[in-house]
C-alpha cells in the first residue's frame, strides 16, 4: 500500500519536474501532438490529404495575423483591431476589381490593385494605431479598441452594409489556387513565417522590438528610436491583417463586413500566448506562435467534427488559453 503511494507520488513529482523545466513552446507542441494523435485515432478522415489541406487552408489566416501580433506583443503592446482591419481590406478589394471605372475594369490592372491597395490601407490603419499609441501615450489596448469598434463600421460603409458576392477567379486564386497541389495561402504563410523568424533574430528591427518590450526606458536611452519602431510594428501588424482579409474573401468568393475576421484578434492573441510569447513583452517566438495557432485551430476542428456545439467550443478554447497563461507565470506553480 505504502509502496504504491510512494511510487505514485514519485511519478507525479517527475511529471511536475518535466512541466517545470520545459518551455511554454515545448508544452504547446506536446499538446498539439497529443491532440493530433487523438484525432488520428478517433476522428474520421483526419489523416487524409483533403482534411490536411482544409486544415492548413483555415489555419493559414490565423498564422499570418498571429505573426504580426507576435511582434506587437513582443514589444509589450497588443492589437485588438486586426479582425476589423481584415474586414476593411476584405470590403475594399471587391470594390476595386468589380469597378467599371476606366483602367480598373481591365483585369490586369484591377486585380493587382485590388490586392495591393487594401493591404496598404490596412497598413495605414495600423499606422494610425501606432500614431495614437506613440503620439498621445495611449495604452495599446485602448488605442486599438478604437478601430476594433470603428473599423467594422468602416467596412460596412464600404460595402453598403451588404454581403458582396463576386465571381472573379483570378482574384480568388489567392484563396483557392493550388500550385503543385499546395494552397496559395499556405505558401504565403510559410514565406511570412520564415521571414518573420529571420527578422526577429537577425535584423535591427527585431532586436529593437524586443528591447522596447523588455525595458522601454532603457531602450530609449540606448538610442533605440522607440516611436518609429512602435509605429512600424503596428503597420506590419496591419499589413498582415489586410492580407489575411483578402485571403478570407477570396476563399468565400464573397465579402461580408460582419463576418470577415470576426473574433480573429482573440484567436491571434491566444495563438501568441499559447505559443510561449509572454504578454508582458521582451521575448517572442514566431515558431511558438505557429504551434499555438495550429493548436487553437485543431481544438476547434476536433470539437466541431465531434459535433460539440459552438458555445462549448468557445469555452474549451478559453480554458486552453487560461491554462497556457497560468503556465507562463514566472516560476510556474501554484501560489
Amino acid at each position: 500500500m505504502s509502496s504504491v503511494t510512494s511510487q505514485l507520488s514519485s511519478r507525479s513529482l517527475s511529471l511536475t519536474d518535466l512541466v517545470r523545466k520545459s518551455s511554454q513552446t515545448e508544452r504547446a507542441l506536446f499538446a498539439l501532438i497529443v491532440l493530433s494523435l487523438y484525432n488520428a485515432f478517433f476522428t474520421t478522415n483526419f489523416l487524409t490529404v483533403a482534411t490536411l489541406r482544409v486544415n492548413l487552408t483555415q489555419v493559414a489566416t490565423i498564422v499570418i495575423v498571429a505573426v504580426g501580433m507576435t511582434f506587437v506583443i513582443g514589444s509589450g503592446g497588443i492589437d485588438l483591431s486586426v479582425g476589423a482591419l481584415m474586414a476593411i481590406s476584405g470590403a475594399l478589394a471587391p470594390k476595386i476589381f468589380t469597378s467599371q471605372w476606366g483602367p480598373l475594369s481591365n483585369e490586369w490592372i484591377g486585380i493587382p490593385l485590388a490586392i495591393v491597395i487594401p493591404v496598404l490601407v490596412a497598413g495605414a490603419f495600423g499606422y494610425f494605431n501606432g500614431y495614437l499609441i506613440t503620439k498621445f501615450s495611449i495604452q495599446p489596448i485602448i488605442a486599438t479598441l478604437v478601430l476594433f469598434l470603428g473599423g467594422r463600421g468602416i467596412a460596412k460603409a464600404l460595402s453598403d452594409g451588404n454581403l458582396v458576392e463576386f465571381n472573379t477567379p483570378h482574384f480568388s486564386y489567392i484563396g483557392r489556387g493550388r500550385p503543385l497541389g499546395v494552397p496559395v495561402q499556405v505558401i504565403l504563410m510559410i514565406v511570412i513565417v520564415i521571414v518573420a523568424v529571420w527578422a526577429l533574430r537577425s535584423t535591427t528591427f527585431g532586436r529593437y522590438v524586443l528591447a522596447i518590450g523588455g525595458n522601454e526606458r532603457a531602450a530609449e536611452l540606448a538610442g533605440v528610436p522607440v516611436t518609429r519602431v512602435k509605429r512600424q510594428i503596428y503597420v506590419l501588424c496591419g499589413l498582415l491583417a489586410g492580407l489575411a482579409g483578402l485571403i478570407v474573401v477570396a476563399i468565400n468568393t464573397s465579402s461580408d463586413p460582419y463576418q470577415v475576421g470576426d473574433g480573429m484578434e482573440l484567436d491571434a492573441i491566444a495563438a501568441v500566448a499559447v505559443g510561449g510569447t509572454p504578454l508582458t513583452g521582451g521575448h517572442a517566438t514566431v515558431a511558438g506562435t505557429v504551434i499555438g495557432a495550429f493548436f487553437i485551430h485543431q481544438v476547434r476542428y476536433t470539437l466541431i467534427s465531434h459535433g460539440v456545439p459552438d458555445g462549448t467550443t468557445r469555452m474549451v478554447i478559453a480554458a486552453a488559453i487560461l491554462v497556457a497563461v497560468l503556465l507562463q507565470r514566472p516560476k510556474a506553480g501554484w501560489r
Partner: peptide, 13 residues
C-alpha cells in the same frame, strides 16, 4: 535596473 539593462536579453544583445 529601470534604465540600463534589458533583463530578458542576453549579455550579447
Amino acid at each position: 535596473k529601470a534604465e540600463g539593462i534589458i533583463p530578458e536579453m542576453s549579455v550579447r544583445e
